[in-house]
Amino acid sequence: MARTPLGRVRGLGSAKEGTHHWWMQRVTAIALVPLTLWFVVSVIGLVGKPYAAVAGWIGNPIVSVFLILMVIATFYHAWLGIQVVVEDYVHAKAVKITSLLLVKFLCFVLAAASIYSILLISLSG
């Protein structure tokens, strides 16, 4: 169907959000490349270390900030990714909308819990 001139200028499709979903999936992906590599290498370094070393690492101000950023990017990316999978495979409307809401809520809860824990470790240390 042909777009109206106004619709073409706005550049938004039927979902009214244009390429925002697709773009944020890429933005979070690019952010997660260095963040996850740094996290994995760091965690491998913590294997076998006592509690104080683990808490000390997470509580370091710079580490805390980047861990919080990693958590945000991770759950944003996971939410967008699972949303696409649900939209592709779940067709019953009630189940689809319920699953999409549950995924979104769960991602927010897990992100909030992680950030709260990081702040607790960082601010009590």
Partner: peptide
């Protein structure tokens, strides 16, 4: 693997929560 990793975040949250 994306779905599996989403499930795996539960261990990440558990781990950080446990350190706290």
């Amino acid at each position: 693997t994306g779905l599996a990793l989403a499930v795996g975040t539960l261990v990440l949250v558990w781990w950080i929560g446990a350190v706290a």
